[in-house]
Structures are given as C-alpha cells and as structure tokens.
Amino acid sequence: MIQLSHLQKLEAEAIFIIREVAATCEKPVLLYSIGKDSAVLLHLAMKAFYPGKPPFPLLHVDTTWKFRDMIAFRDQTASRLGLDLIVHINEEGVRAGVSPFASGSRLHTDVMKTQGLKQALDKYGFDAAFGGARRDEEKSRAKERVFSLRSAQHRWDPKSQRPEPWRLFNTRKGPGESFRVFPLSNWTEKDVWDYIALENIPVVPLYFAAPRPVVRRNGAWIMRDDERMELLPGEQLETRMVRFRTLGCYPLTGAVESEAANLTDIIAEMRASRSSEREGRVIDHDGSGSMEQKKQEGYF
C-alpha cells in the first residue's frame, strides 16, 4: 500500500469534492478571489479534470478596491490557463458612491461583495459556487459544511445544516436553492503554503515582502495603492518592508512588517507567528458574531 502524506490526503479530498460538484450540479462556477486559497483551489480544479479543462468558468466579484497587482495577476492567470473569467461589479453600488472610506467597511463589504456576489449568481443562474474558505480561518467557518446549502435568497441557516457523514454529500436541492462548496475545508494556512511550495503554484507578489508605501491607520499598516486614498491630517506616507498574509480590498487589508521575500521565509514566519491570518482583516472585527451574520446574509 502506498502511504499517502497529509497533503496528498487533503489534495485527494479536495479533488473528490470538485468532481462531485461537476457531476451533480447543473451550472457550477469557481469564485476566484485571486488570493492564495483561490490559487490552490484553481490548481486543484485543473488537476481534477486533467487532461480536460474544468467544466466551469471563474467568477470574480470586483469591489473596484482590490490591489492593482491582484487584478493584473487575475487576468494573467485566466489567460495562462485558458479559462473563462467573468468579472462582476455591483454597478448600483458604484453609482451610489459606496467605498470603504465614504461608507465604512461594513456597508462597503455588504454592498460590493455580498450583494455583488448574489447579483452575479442570479444573473448567470449558477447553482453551485466553489469558495476557498477554510474551517481554521474563523469560528463560524469551523461550523460550515463542505456543501453549504443556501436558500433562493442566498441565506445560510446554521441550525439546519445537513449532516455529511463519511464523504457522502447530499447534493439535492430545491428550485432556486444553491450550494456554496468549500473543497479546502480541512486545510490550514500552513497546509496551503506547504502545498503552494510543493506544487510551485504562482501567487500574487503582494504575499512577498517588498518596500511599499504605507500609512499607519487604526493600528494597521494600510498600503496606499492608488490616489483615491486620501491621507488624513497627521498621517505620513512611509516606505516600509511589508507583505500581506491575506488579500482583500486594499483599504481594509493590513500589511505586516516582514523581510520574508520567498516561500521558505513565509512558511518560517508563519510558524513563528503569534497572531491569526485574519488579524489584518478589518471586516472581521465589526463584532464577534459578524462573520456569521455576513454569512447568513449571503457572504461566503
């Protein structure tokens, strides 16, 4: 018998889940959010259907506040792999002038991300959307199913989740209902980086330390990625060696000071770290149940 390593087991499990969706859902889509988890997810999807291509497109819900490096990387990746990429922007939100600065993180995330995602799923009629979320990220995610059923209104009901014994997923759903599917449920941040290193998966350069223009705001290093971010009185733009542990909208994502400029250093730094990767995410700190609430409203 060939003994499978921890990563090989996780890989096999994720591939199984991805294929199960392709086999049982009508119109799946891969929610591609450009970060490291999405990179791993996409890599696994390519493997699952090799020598064919994944039988579903990529969807990016663009809040218009992503780092420029992320957008460039997104377009490169789609063309490198020859996959269809759908970019959806909540135009109503744009017209209403919603932004992280003017509206605050909570409203911005709700309108541009959650509502934007629902619009896109409804517009194209997707009945299953892959996400790269992991259970180790956040407490309410630890309770999430691999196949998470959402109502026609995209709501998540944490109290009536279906049991998932063994690897048997109940993929039946009623009209209008859809699934959010999380093939990386059992991966940890360390597993993700180990796998990226092992498989040599390209990731956005923002994960690696480099001199970048940042300001200290609300206790976090925020990178000024474009002119839309105005400096407040007393704020000073500095150039520091920083990198990002997670990537989101640039005004809402704190950088960490680091010298880790390659994968080996990143993995070493993560091992020594005493804070969780989502520490830099402003949206997680809106209240201790806030992620759960956002998920109930339809957020991934």
């Binding site: 630890a142 309770k143 149940g289």
Partner: peptide, 17 residues
C-alpha cells in the same frame, strides 16, 4: 462559534479544529 451557541452556552453543530 455560532451566536446561538454563545447565547445558550451549548454546542449545536460539529466544529472542526
């Protein structure tokens, strides 16, 4: 992790750690 669990002080669902 769930609000209902915190309020009631019980575990409702499987949590993986």
């Amino acid at each position: 992790g769930l609000s209902a669990e915190r309020e009631q002080g019980i575990t409702i669902d499987v949590a993986y750690r």
